[in-house]
Design a protein around this nucleic acid. Structure first.
Lengths: 153, 153
DNA sequence: GCTTGACCCTCCCATGATGGGAGACATCAT
DNA sequence: ATGATGTCTCCCATCATGGGAGGGTCAAGC
């Protein structure tokens, strides 16, 4: 259910322990821009408003924002966070689904790490073999152009 | 200088050793879509055309596309590739600039790898401590919600 | 010749997460 | 009352890539 419009001014709202979007942003390290965005994609519930149309946030909203922030920091996508939040909202659910999501994401990270590690190894190998002086010969360009010995990756 | 329109039909063009965009895509593993895109952002020169407007590619164009492809595979951004290509086009230039670019990119990769490795470690640690059965308790959700012991990351 | 299927063309839209900025209104402190 | 913030909505940009619509072109088979 959409929440009712609350007290007319921000001052009154704050007296009720509610926060404006700026306060919420500071308290959760999620930018006001992103808070609005999360509401627009329904990751956050429709925020209550003052008479003037300012969004208002309660502590539970801040919790949710911190949850999202932490999950983003761990690299979860918005879609994955939607799932995590729904599991969080319904604590009766088994933890196996959460574990599944976490391990799946960890495996995805591992995969990306391996790819990037391979790139890094190739690059440092090529750079090591590149004089880096005024010589025009450069194994790096030769590799990119397909005309030189391949890097050891 | 923009290249002149060449022979009227694709058949004639092929007889001159030229390739249509589909051929070029297959030969370089760069999609036709991306080849057009690279032309639009001037990473590739304006392609010659048949009378009917079909783009035509010579071997040197395929070389350039393969160079781009390889550099993308190594994770270079388009802007970095622009620089690499200009260094490649002007072989008289010192190789130190190329080496600089490569090492700089390798460092950026290292940084990202470290970040992702940290995420992965946190996740596997949390998952290890999560029963993953029908219990509702879940260290993963507790971490995200900020209500549990922190993961060892 | 005519049809058919495989090309190719341009133009627009979408992704995912985030930021920037304009123009207008609200609130707050002086 | 006035000026400095704060907030509102709406639009645009990023980066690399793909999808698709609507329409023209080419080659092969009949």
């Amino acid at each position: 259910m959409p929440r009712p419009t609350l007290r007319p001014e921000a001052a009154g709202a704050r007296a009720q322990g509610l926060h404006t979007i700026g306060d919420a942003a500071e308290a959760t390290a999620v930018s006001a821009k992103m808070i609005r965005h999360y509401e627009s994609i329904r990751l956050m519930p429709t925020a209550g408003r003052t008479f003037a149309g300012y969004r208002l946030y309660a502590e539970s909203d801040l919790h949710r924002l911190r949850f999202i922030k932490r999950a983003r920091t761990l690299g979860f996508s918005i879609k994955e966070i939607e799932q995590l939040l729904s599991l969080w909202d319904d604590r009766r659910r088994a933890s196996s689904e959460v574990k599944q999501l976490a391990l799946q994401h960890a495996r995805a990270l591992e995969q990306k790490i391996r790819e990037m590690e391979s790139m890094r190894a190739t690059l440092t190998d090529l750079a090591r073999r590149c004089h880096g002086d005024s010589h025009p010969d450069c194994p790096i360009l030769e590799d990119l152009a397909g005309t030189g010995r391949k890097a050891t990756n």
